[in-house]
């Protein structure tokens, strides 16, 4: 096949992406440098005013910090709880594994709105979670979960566990059962094998799912809206508020740009981390990258 003949094959998809993805992104970034001239109107510029406004005012800035904090906490918790689930699915017998897999993935199939509505009932002041906590005397008075940072965190972790589990399963699969048997065969206990064999081999692989969860949380809209009760202001909520309610298009664009940069930085970090790993593997020679015998 001739080199030039391939480009037309790419053309339809490329054109579609350029018109409806690249161009609008460029447009909205330009908008973030325009002057706000009253509701739904903007023009002039370019000016950095919109950015300095947002970054200098603690109240307007808060959304950035809340988003960062939420994403970091959700990413760590999700990775930690998804790891044992992935191990269980990989190591269990075929029928049990399949059942667990269906449970994990089917919760992924449920619309995020529906899941948040479910949590809203459970997390209310007189909801089941508080009933259990009171009955166990963990707390004396109901904890505010719905409409709090904690509530959003719970909902986000629940939302993203399936993504993390799907990402971790192949990494756990790369530790061959023969490796574990070799360890058991030499008399090592299960916990010893876990900490000295499974964990060291898979630990690096957790970085990618962790960053993915971070990025997905940063951009999430449904769960913070439904479980935050208007009190957990993350960037996506600010974007909606500024753009659709206050009609301050330039400021909405500023928040979107900040979110974009944030998520891009996370993906860049992931790319660099995986690149360094690949380079190191290359230096060590091909044997080092091969985990299964």
């Amino acid at each position: 096949m001739n080199t030039r003949r391939w480009y037309p094959v790419l053309l339809p998809a490329a054109l579609f992406l350029i018109v409806f993805f690249v161009w609008p992104e460029v447009q909205f970034l330009r908008l973030s440098f325009e002057e706000y001239q009253g509701q739904a109107r903007s023009g002039g510029g370019p000016t950095l005013r919109n950015y300095t406004d947002v970054l200098s005012d603690p109240f307007l800035r808060k959304g950035i910090l809340t988003t960062l904090r939420l994403s970091a906490i959700v990413a760590v918790i999700t990775a930690l709880v998804s790891y044992p689930l992935a191990i269980a699915i990989v190591r269990a017998g075929p029928r049990l594994a399949r059942a667990m897999f269906v449970i994990v993935v089917s919760s992924m199939f449920m619309s995020g709105v529906v899941r948040a509505l479910g949590w809203r009932v459970l997390l209310g002041d007189s909801g089941m979670v508080n009933d259990v906590l009171l009955a166990l005397h963990v707390v004396d008075t109901p904890v505010t979960l719905y409409g709090s940072f904690t509530g959003v965190t719970i909902g986000m972790v629940h939302l993203l566990i399936p993504y993390a589990v799907l990402g971790i399963i192949p990494i756990v699969e790369s530790v061959s059962p023969q490796l574990l048997q070799a360890s058991y065969g030499m008399g090592a206990s299960r916990p010893y094998t876990f900490f000295r064999v499974t964990l060291p081999i898979t630990a690096r692989g957790l970085i990618a799912p962790l960053l993915l969860v971070f990025a997905l949380t940063a951009g999430a809209f449904t769960t913070p809206t439904l479980l935050g009760g208007g009190r957990v202001g993350v960037l996506s909520i600010y974007i909606r508020e500024q753009t659709l309610m206050l009609l301050n298009y330039p400021r909405g664009a500023v928040y979107a740009a900040i979110l974009l940069v944030l998520v891009f930085a996370v993906f860049l970090a992931g790319f660099l981390a995986s690149g360094r790993r690949a380079r190191r593997a290359k230096r060590r020679g091909p044997a080092a990258t091969e985990v299964t015998p």
Partner: peptide, 9 residues
């Protein structure tokens, strides 16, 4: 690119 940013754009 987060969906909310794509939506806004």
């Amino acid at each position: 690119v987060p969906a909310i940013v794509q939506g806004l754009a």
